[in-house]
């Protein structure tokens, strides 16, 4: 497959670097201000030779740009799959949403690592897919390397009653450290920021928004997947989620939990009807009490019992693996 990678953050760069190993070719890369598009004319047999991944990554590191072209050039390039890896935006979910719909209008596929369009405008995306020969996939938007969406699809959404889990590594790291060391939130947050586990503004993670977006996406998968006619499906957005974060959980709460063999985790739950994210009491050695930045997805099924998949929920190469897995599923 020929890929146009839009967004050159950790995920976009890793997709550029790892595409070759997965048998794909990157023909265009764009960040917010620049682009590089492979010059097809120089390719053997009229085939584009693809852009040089190392050169793209080096230019981004040294000069902050991926090439000398305009981002518009990458969107207009001759690709099979557009990889949308720009930062998540809420509301109209642009520019990510427009990047995806423009690919679909050209009957190309789109693979998203950006949560915005699938969390905030799932119905609009489904409508665009219905009018296109292209498809969309978005495994990388939920749980990084964990195959959450594709597992739900394999089981079939109509046979999945709920999906829950730990879907934010930053919040999980903070809760794990608070419980293990008896430290307060502010101390552990500063530590996480020094380690690069938490961002300078950690609101998105510690207020539960990031986990909620992932649950909203899963709720959309369950809701749309369970009906024949998309018009019958309930569409979820962040506004439909009941969200509580971990910001004000005191150390004493974790100590009381530990005295009783339990701990607190920020748990997200999605069904076809509800989305809820909140700190919850779980057994200390239970399946859901993953530690550090680990994530876990627990899928409750009608006929196949309960499935648990844990692993790395974030990171460039991890998320890029999910993106490239999606590319591999497209025909």
């Amino acid at each position: 497959m020929r890929l146009a990678v839009i967004g050159a953050g950790a995920v976009g760069r890793s997709v550029v670097e790892l595409a070759g190993e997965h048998g794909h070719e990157v023909v265009a890369v764009a960040d917010s201000s620049s682009a590089v598009v492979a010059d097809g004319a120089n390719g053997p047999d009229g085939r584009t030779p693809g852009v040089d991944p190392d050169a793209v990554v080096a230019r981004k590191a040294e000069r902050g740009i991926v090439g000398d072209g305009d981002p518009e050039d990458a969107l207009a390039a001759d690709y099979d799959v557009l990889v949308e890896a720009t930062p998540t935006t809420l509301g109209d979910a642009d520019p990510g949403f427009s990047h995806v719909t423009r690919a679909l209008e050209r009957d190309r596929h789109a693979v998203l690592a950006n949560k915005g369009p699938v969390a905030e405008r799932f119905g609009d995306l489904r409508a665009a897919v219905a009018d296109s020969a292209g498809e969309i996939r978005f495994e990388a938007t939920v749980g990084g390397a964990i195959p959450a969406v594709s597992t739900v699809e394999d089981i079939e959404p109509g046979h999945v009653t709920a999906v829950r889990g730990v879907l934010n590594g930053t919040a999980n790291f903070i809760l794990t450290r608070m419980a293990a060391e008896g430290l307060d939130y502010d101390h552990v947050l500063a530590e996480a920021q020094d380690l690069g586990v938490a961002e300078a503004d950690p609101s998105f993670d510690v207020d539960g928004t990031d986990a909620a977006l992932k649950c909203v996406i899963l709720a959309n998968v369950l809701s749309f997947g369970a009906v024949d006619d998309p018009a019958d499906a309930r569409e979820f957005t962040l506004d439909d989620a009941d969200v509580e974060g971990i910001r004000d959980v005191p150390g004493s709460t974790l100590r009381l939990a530990a005295e009783d063999g339990r701990t607190v985790r920020l748990i997200g739950e999605a069904t076809g009807e509800t989305v809820r994210v909140a700190p919850r009491l779980v057994p200390e050695n239970g399946t859901l009490a993953v530690s550090g930045t680990q994530n876990i997805v627990q899928i409750e099924t009608t006929h196949a019992g309960r499935l648990n998949i844990s692993g790395r929920g974030a990171g460039g190469p991890e998320t890029a693996s999910a993106v490239l897995g999606d590319v591999g599923r497209l025909k």
């Binding site: 829950r164 959980v249 607190v264 909140a278 700190p279 919850r280 009491l281 779980v282 859901l288 627990q298």
Partner: peptide, 12 residues
């Protein structure tokens, strides 16, 4: 007050 609810029916 903030309530931290257990995950009932999940503890397996």
């Amino acid at each position: 007050l903030r309530l931290v609810e257990p995950l009932t029916g999940v503890e397996a």
